Simulated assay, not measured.
Amino acid sequence: MTRPNLLLVDDHPITIDGYVNILTTSKDHDTLIDFTTAYSCEEAYVKITKRYLSQKTFDLAFLDISLPPYEIKNIQNGIDLGALIRQYFPKCKIILLTMHSEPLLIHNAIKKINPEGFILKNDINALSLVTAYLSIMQGHKFYSATITKVLSQAILKKLNFDAIDCQILELISRGIKTKDMTKHLNLSLSAIEKRKAAIKNKLLKDKRSDKELIEHAIKIGLL
């Protein structure tokens, strides 16, 4: 049997060591696994592109969302890495892991890369990590309890935000100026300005500041 090739990306080495130990010592499967590890967006980018150029693939990627960014390539987090993996390795399954359960982050990730697995770190232990791994490798999806609960909430459905709307709001929350958003989005400045105005209208019903917009988004639980 061919060994699965797994990519593990997390900025805490002890976390990656834990994943490797759990997956290699589990009695629920006896398949040997090849691991590739990275601790930042830049390191992951290098290893993903090298593997692509060598005409090899990954079978599954565990991606922490919060990672040191790779600004030169505009890769800010694990979601952006997931988009890169979708481009280079369309058959690779993706598990996103996070400590954050904000609806905007979760919906943005779903809309942008539609991961096979999405896990809030506080939801899992060694047993459920193995369960998630085996389930996804067998072609199923696995979303942990908190992620499933957030997805069932109506707030973003009511607002009808798409992936770009979510990205614009996330960029505003990071303090990115509107004129600089063209570096992060494949949109013209005028298109971004129209989108931003529509977002403010949906959330605030009038023309208030970016600061007030973010304060309101936090208040209603989007951020």
Rank of each mutant, 00 (worst) to 15 (best):
K177Q: 14
K56W: 10
D30I: 13
L203V: 12
A132H: 09
L23Q: 09
I199Q: 03
T182Q: 15
A44E: 04
E212P: 03
G78H: 02
D17L: 07
L120M: 05
N74E: 07
L6S: 05
D34R: 15
L213Q: 09
K200W: 03
Q167H: 02
F142V: 10
R174K: 11
D162T: 01
K141T: 13
S135R: 08
S144K: 04
T24M: 14
G117R: 02
S173H: 00
M1W: 15
N186C: 05
L97Q: 15
K177G: 02
A154M: 11
S26G: 07
A197N: 14
A132I: 01
G117H: 08
S209Q: 09
I106W: 03
L53M: 14
A191P: 07
L159K: 07
T31L: 09
E215M: 12
L60R: 06
K177M: 12
G175M: 03
T15F: 15
L97G: 02
I85W: 05
C41F: 01
I176Q: 05
L81Y: 01
S173A: 08
K202H: 15
P103K: 12
I33F: 13
K73N: 12
N201A: 10
I220M: 14
Q76W: 09
L159P: 00
Y143S: 03
Y133D: 00
